[in-house]
């Protein structure tokens, strides 16, 4: 499967996505905009509170082409963060002790040729490093086979997508063979000590719905995941993060093609939870794009909605300005505020 960009698909254009999110497919405006919904719950204007996490997207290249991917990542994407831009991130992180967490994402972040150097420098600065590892990369090529040991050496927290504990739903979303490869990779991570009680090496899994429905309760799903993965595959993990699919990019394409777009948006709007809105991750996280531009979150990054302040690039980083910024919101934000809410760390309300 090719990325939307490689297909020259209309939804590869962020403006086309934003137009659909505002006016639907047939020009009918959404019943209530996210901004108005925030205002109704006395949450507008929507401002950042602090910045303790830098989420850095170090490239859109990936060994997988998942059907729901909000990045439109894949083997045909060549956008990769350079060592120079990484150095700019390191300079900012060195100067700001309050930025304690660095969350590396992609694509498959490991495919960036400077990935290991970047992780080494980050841990040298004493930052807590999270890597969003798609699991299959560990088995994709011999040069990645030692990743579990590399992660262990640098005390990296590994967060990995496993959309379901069974093959069918996982492979339908992430590609044929992904479930088996993911199980094998999880066993390798366990063998390196990840996910084992008392090891201090965190292995967290991510569930996201494989279709046009909302995620269920995180605790109940985590219990089921733990039982099934332990019984069938002897796999241990720390936590399960339940994440809602954002109606953008490839998942938006799926919603439109399957005729589920309107009902999905209705569900998100109906499930709006002001308590979740209060805790969304953009209030304490800043997202850095592969080219160094700054965004409120990885989703805004893919929609090309830069931060609403003067510090628009990592080289212009001004902590005070950024932590007081008003967050750029759009109707896709309903994805983070539905039900128990959604963030890269799971539910939030």
């Amino acid at each position: 499967m090719k990325s939307l960009k490689a297909q020259h698909h209309s939804l590869a254009d962020a403006h086309a996505q934003l137009a659909i999110l505002a006016y639907g497919q047939d020009g009918t405006a959404i019943p209530i905009s996210f901004r108005d919904k925030l205002a109704q719950s006395q949450s507008y204007p929507f401002k950042a509170r602090q910045i303790d996490t830098l989420q850095v997207n170090i490239g859109k290249m990936c060994n997988q082409t998942c059907k729901h991917c909000h990045v439109d990542a894949g083997p045909d994407r060549k956008e990769i963060m350079t060592a120079e831009t990484m150095q700019l991130c390191l300079d900012v992180l060195r100067q700001h002790e309050q930025l304690t967490v660095v969350d590396l994402t992609g694509g498959a972040p490991e495919m960036n040729p400077n990935f290991r150097w970047f992780v080494e420098q980050l841990t040298r600065l004493g930052k807590h490093v999270i890597v969003r590892c798609n699991l299959t990369i560990i088995l994709a090529n011999k040069k990645y086979a030692d990743l579990p040991d590399f992660y262990r050496k640098h005390r990296v927290e590994v967060v990995s997508s496993l959309p379901f504990y069974a093959q069918d739903r996982t492979d339908r979303q992430r590609g044929n063979g992904v479930f088996d490869a993911s199980i094998h990779a999880l066993q390798l991570l366990n063998r390196a000590g990840y996910g084992k009680e008392g090891s201090g090496m965190k292995l967290n899994l991510v569930y996201n719905p494989s279709g046009a429905f909302l995620p269920s309760g995180q605790i109940a799903l985590e219990t089921t995941y733990r039982e099934v993965l332990r019984q069938r595959f002897s796999i241990e993990f720390n936590e399960l993060f339940v994440i809602t699919n954002m109606p953008i990019s490839r998942f938006l394409d799926y919603l439109l093609m399957s005729g589920n777009y309107e009902s999905y948006m209705e569900k998100l709007i109906h499930a709006y939870n002001p308590a979740a809105a209060a805790n969304v991750m953009c209030r304490n996280t800043l997202s850095v794009g592969w080219d160094g531009y700054l965004y409120d979150c990885d989703f805004n990054q893919m929609l090309e909605l830069k931060v609403n302040c003067e510090s628009q690039h990592i080289r212009e980083f001004n902590h005070q300005t950024l932590k007081e910024r008003e967050i750029v919101v759009g109707n896709h934000c309903y994805g983070c505020t539905a039900g128990s809410g959604s963030s890269c760390g799971g539910t939030i309300a």
Partner: peptide
């Protein structure tokens, strides 16, 4: 059908 699928029951 939706609720049970959301709650993780398989097809």
């Amino acid at each position: 059908s939706t609720d049970a699928y959301e709650k993780g029951w398989s097809e």
